[in-house]
Design a binder for these strands. Structure first.
Length: 793
RNA sequence: GCUUGUGUGGCGGAAUUGGUAGACGCGCACGACUCAAAAUCGUGUGGCAUUAGCCGUGUGGGUUCGAUUCCCACCACGAGCACCA
């Protein structure tokens, strides 16, 4: 029908030459900062999923520019981290070169889609000019006591040979390769993210994230309210954390985690230490090998020779150790109330421990509300919250406990034993300890070496490069060694949106002026898979920068939307092994970028997954062919023949783009075209408006047609169409007649028809008459502009 | 198990937030053009009946003149977390 390749190339060159999409850092126009998650430039090339997200915000960006906004719509590359490194190892190239080649491919593929990115602000997280500032910001964390090194049991992936954060090893499985992760004790850098748990929850109030996103964040942070209670073991204190202090009268045993330090401390008093040591070993191997096993039969050993004293009842309580209590949460110890907790119940049943109900109920373990029994000061109460309060008051008064809030969120393990990451810019001096690399010496560059594969001994590959490791102490000038761990791949993505504001600044990570001008990201689109990790890290990082006065907003993103995945034609997630991958490049070649863009916007609800359909794509291509062809019906007239429909369409498309309802926006344009096709000929205004509204979706063909028929300035340099509020409603409408809520007739009537008139018309309708004849009219409901419903008996 | 999302034709999906269910597209059927096919164009298309009727938005109940929309219970599928005290 038309030669899409030529046209698309032509207009891409036009935009490039005219710098149509360059954002200005000082403009009187209203600003819009639109952001998509920057991609990993993997060897596989661009995915149709990228196309969906980029086209969606591109549509918005193009529309807003035409509405007179100064739009910042940038792109860059998140190129550090395991995927890039593994690709490089596999293909025997230096990661630096692999990344360079992949970026080139990605860039070409994005450019041929006609996405209106401001390429002037492009960078990669692997550019020394960029990671210099990532390192610089790490030093800010360090200077403020927010980064620390600690010997920690970390999640170790034996395949990737590196430590992982909790977020990266959810479920005991490596996020990257799927290997079983096990606990390994190692010195690691950590960021004190847990200090920000509450702020990260509170901050959500300052955002316009959807509830789905907010809930995702809140769940990950995992706040729980409860109390700490001190039990005595002789002179020692055993503090437990519980959310149900009101059930303390039902405690029949204590459980402490196998790694709990109290075991070591009291070992002289414990009479079955051999048995306990054996259990500790068992628990350790279990966590290594059988963690995901479904059989979660409770195991444990009673610690003999010591007893705890319930501080409220003064009763002696036996102490057990069991691996269903984790050292990493709360205090690593619990008071077990088998009558009202299913796990404690299971344990008590298995080991024949007493079960004392303290809240009335039929079945055990009973966890609902009820009347308190066997509970001394709480007896007779029926309200759980009141009982909890009363008990906490009692604990506080008697100095045996206190209210306590716990979070699941832990500190961020920030070390990786990999080559392809930002080196942590610290130097270890035998005299001075840890010393920062001075700002003038940043960035600490990665060396050019031949061997960057991970080692088996758990050290970073950098550790083997003597000439890199050995350095002098910036403080005392003596011999010292560099830190050889690198940062996780989440580091570079934790502040990249700030850099776009001022991408080539070599004096600061971003200037104050740029920060103040651009403020928050107005709209951030990305995938569900990043709601837990990336979004949390990025917000944490930004909140820290805010707290030390480096950025003007505590929350970095105002609005966050989630795109659904594009699945293969078979409805399965696209993957090489399934052979259901659709390559955007070949689609562009065969059908054109415009067709691909329109199709991906039309494919369905933006937030939901959708299966690829080549027939659906063809339908969109057909639509564009018809848009092209209808130019032949152009007459010399101005104005709109069907004013209502055109004005309605302008309104609908404008609103739908802002409300991420791209599918219905495209549908509205199809309806408009269908209407044009029913006309003898179409006016110049009609054609221009159709092309203009379609332009954000299909920017090439619409510019070409606009030029071909000399309809006006290029669309990208023209003002977005405005609708006439007085012309979006018809003078007539179809009045619906119902009897008992069922449609029995319809009639075209004038907009201003009165209620009385409507009722009269309803009763006169032949078909309605049939249904009300001989029946008693109970009442008549009349909705002006819509319907009349006659209720009969 | 907990959290969360989703259930509408053969398929992807619409539905002004309580008011004509199935817009738009795909697919399919028939027709036109063609020697023929593809492409294109036209007509039709929820099911059952076929004259105007009945049934239909996962299932069962409820509220209402009226429910895809609100309430209760249940079922199915997907995602995330998973012994978090």
């Amino acid at each position: 029908m038309y030669e899409h390749q030529k046209i698309e190339q032509k207009w891409q060159e036009y935009w490039q030459e005219h710098q149509t999409f360059a954002a200005s850092n000082n403009s009187k126009k209203p600003k819009s900062y639109l952001l998509v998650e920057f991609p990993y430039p993997s060897g596989a090339g661009l995915h149709v999923g990228h196309v969906r997200s980029y086209t969606a915000l591109d549509t918005l960006a193009r529309k807003r520019r035409m509405e007179g906004h100064n739009v910042l719509f940038p792109i860059g590359w998140d190129a550090f981290g395991a995927p890039a490194e593994q690709y490089a190892i596999k293909n025997h190239i230096h990661p630096k070169d692999a990344v360079k080649a992949n970026i080139k491919t990605f860039k070409k593929q994005i450019e041929e889609l006609g996405i209106s990115f401001d390429w002037n602000r492009e960078f990669s997280t692997t550019d020394p000019e960029y990671y210099k500032w990532t390192q610089w910001q790490f030093l800010k964390f360090y200077e403020h006591g927010m980064a620390y090194k600690a010997k920690k049991n970390i999640n170790w992936c034996p395949t990737c040979k590196t430590g992982l954060s909790n977020e990266d090893s959810a479920g005991g499985v490596c996020e990257r390769c799927g290997s079983q992760v096990y606990q390994k004790e190692k010195e690691q850098w950590l960021l004190r993210m847990s200090d920000y748990a509450e702020d990260l929850i509170q901050g959500l109030d300052d955002t316009n994230f959807s509830d789905r996103v907010k809930i995702g964040q809140i769940n990950w942070i995992g706040k729980s309210k409860g109390a700490e209670i001190d039990f005595k073991i002789g002179d020692e204190n055993l503090t437990v954390y519980t959310t149900r202090p009101d059930t303390i009268y039902g405690v029949t045993f204590m459980v402490i985690a196998p790694e709990h330090p109290l075991i070591e401390k009291l070992s002289s008093k414990i009479t079955n230490m051999d048995e306990i040591k054996k259990y500790q070993e068992f628990a350790k191997t279990k966590s290594e090998l059988e963690r995901t096993e479904l059989s979660k039969e409770k195991t444990g050993v009673e610690i003999k020779g010591i007893k705890a004293i319930n501080p409220v009842t003064q009763k002696e309580i036996p102490i057990w150790t069991a691996d269903y209590v984790m050292m990493g949460y709360g205090t690593g110890a619990i008071m077990a109330v088998p009558a009202h907790d299913s796990r404690d119940y299971e344990f008590a049943n298995k080991f024949n421990i007493d079960i004392i109900p303290v809240i009335e109920g039929d079945t055990l373990p009973y966890t609902g509300d009820g009347k308190y029994i066997n509970s001394d000061i709480l007896n007779g109460m029926t309200n759980k919250d009141e009982a909890v309060h009363k008990m906490i008051d009692y604990l506080e008064k008697n100095k045996i406990g206190r209210p306590k809030v716990n979070y699941r969120l832990q500190d961020w393990i920030f070390s990786r034993q990999r080559f392809w990451g930002e080196p942590i810019p610290l130097i270890n001096c035998p005299n001075c300890g840890w010393v920062e690399v001075p700002e003038k010496d940043l960035p600490v560059r990665l060396p050019d070496v031949a061997n960057y594969e991970p080692t088996d001994d758990g050290e970073s590959p950098l550790a083997g490069i003597d000439e890199w490791v050995n350095t002098t102490c910036p403080k005392c000038g003596g011999k010292a060694k560099r830190e050889t761990d690198t940062m996780p791949n989440w580091a570079g993505s934790s502040w990249y949106w700030l850099r776009y504001m001022d991408a080539h600044n070599d004096q600061e990570f971003v200037s104050k002026e740029a920060l103040n001008y651009w403020g928050k990201v107005d709209w951030y689109d990305g995938g569900m898979e990043h709601v837990a990790r990336h979004l949390l890290y990025a917000r944490f990082w930004n909140q820290f920068l805010y707290n030390i006065g480096l950025v003007p907003n505590k929350e970095p993103f105002d609005k966050r939307t989630l795109h659904g995945m594009i699945l293969g034609p078979d409805g399965e997630k696209m993957s090489k092994s399934k052979g259901n991958v659709i390559n955007p490049h070949s689609i562009v070649e065969e059908f054109g970028a415009d067709a691909l863009r329109v199709y991906e916007m039309f494919i369905g609800d933006y937030e939901k997954d959708a299966a690829w359909s080549t027939n659906g794509l063809k339908g969109c291509k057909r639509f564009l062919d018809r848009v092209w062809k209808i130019g032949e019906k152009l007459n010399d007239k101005q104005g709109y023949q069907n004013e209502v429909l055109v004005n309605q369409t302008i309104k609908k498309v404008s609103d739908d783009i802002e409300n991420i309802k791209y599918n219905t926006a495209v549908s509205a344009l199809m309806i408009l075209l269908n209407n044009y096709e029913d006309e003898e000929s179409i006016t110049r205004d009609e054609y221009r408006t159709l092309l203009h509204l379609l332009n954000p979706f299909a920017p090439h063909i619409t510019e070409e047609l606009n030029e071909k028929y000399s309809l006006g300035k290029p669309l990208c340099e023209s003002n977005w169409p405005k609708y006439d509020e007085t012309k979006i409603e018809n003078d007539n409408y179809e009045l619906v007649f119902q009897v008992n809520g069922k449609v029995r007739g319809k009639m075209e009537v004038a907009k201003e028809t009165s209620k009385q008139e409507m009722e009269k018309l309803a009763k006169e309708n032949e078909n309605v008459k049939k249904f009300i004849e001989g029946k008693e009219i109970v009442k008549i409901i009349t909705i002006p502009g819509r319907l009349v419903n006659i209720v009969v008996k």
